[in-house]
């Protein structure tokens, strides 16, 4: 274990542990947009910037991203200096200009006192801040159906050639983990549509209620060894089935 200081408080941590994790454990709030515990930190949004220094740096300090900066002995971390707050505010202004329609960004901007953004704003319909959570989740945890294509300002999240993906399993993890709700999907009855592909939700074998796409069940089956059909019972029916089983057990 090592000791470091966050906002004046001495705290303990493992050497190399990321500053964000330590701060959150200690109840120090650091804003993030591109951080998701399920995937490796990316350092793309720059909202989690903090100022670090060391006793032997002779007053010199630098801004680093808390999400991936490794803790070291005697590090002094300040999470709300003027420079930190100013940088976060500027980043929010850049994001507002990109996604004027995003509620989350607007709220965060207000928190940072950004009442009158001055930069030219883009289209209201744009919600994606390119935080890369969806693509990291899909690439690293699911089937890699989507990626960020193009470079620089042209960058966008999409399926290959913007066509219907044959590896997407319709699990909605991308849409659900998006901080700005930028990924659209639709679910009506036994149909779920995402990235231009409509999945049939398999009806519960007992009551007919929608369960999950067959593709997701197959993917799960491959990973867990359970039979595909075992996934096609809805939660309610499964619980009722469990209750019925209990009936026959002597307690």
């Amino acid at each position: 274990m090592i000791e470091l200081t966050i906002d004046g408080k001495r705290v303990q941590a493992r050497k190399g542990e990321h500053l964000l994790a330590i701060a959150r454990r200690e109840g120090v709030e650091i804003p993030t947009l591109c951080h998701h515990e399920a995937v490796e930190p990316s350092g793309a949004c720059r909202m989690c910037m903090v100022e670090v220094t060391r006793p032997d740096w002779e007053g010199w300090s630098k801004l680093v991203t808390a999400c991936n900066f490794p803790a070291e002995e005697d590090l002094i971390v300040r999470t709300r200096t003027d420079k930190v707050m100013q940088t976060r505010k500027e980043i929010l202004e850049l994001l507002i200009a990109r996604t004027p329609g995003s509620q989350l960004i607007a709220e965060m901007a207000r928190e940072y006192g950004l009442d009158h953004p001055t930069l030219t704003v883009g289209e209201l319909s744009e919600k994606c801040i390119l935080c890369d959570i969806c693509t990291r989740v899909c690439q690293n945890l699911v089937t890699g159906a989507i990626s960020r294509i193009n470079r620089g300002v042209e960058k966008e999240v999409n399926t290959p050639f913007a066509e219907v993906s044959d590896v997407c399993i319709g699990c909605l993890a991308c849409a659900k983990s998006c901080p700005t709700d930028a990924i659209e999907f639709k679910q009506v009855g036994l149909e779920r549509t995402i990235w231009g592909r409509t999945f049939d939700l398999v009806p519960c074998t007992q009551c007919g209620a929608p369960t999950l796409p067959k593709e997701q069940a197959e993917w799960l089956s491959e990973r867990t060894g359970m039979k595909v059909e075992e996934y096609f019972v809805c939660v309610k029916c499964k619980a009722a089935q469990t209750a019925r089983t209990y009936e026959n057990i002597a307690w």
Binding site: H36, A38, V137, L141, V142, C171, L172, A173, K176, S177, T211, L212, Q216, A217, L220, T224, M226, E230, Y231, V235, K236, C237, K238, A239, A240, Q241, T242
Partner: peptide, 14 residues
């Protein structure tokens, strides 16, 4: 990541 795979997997509906 809210993929609800666990929901589908739990055989007891829990």
């Amino acid at each position: 990541i809210r993929c609800h795979s666990c929901v589908a997997a739990c055989p007891f509906g829990n």
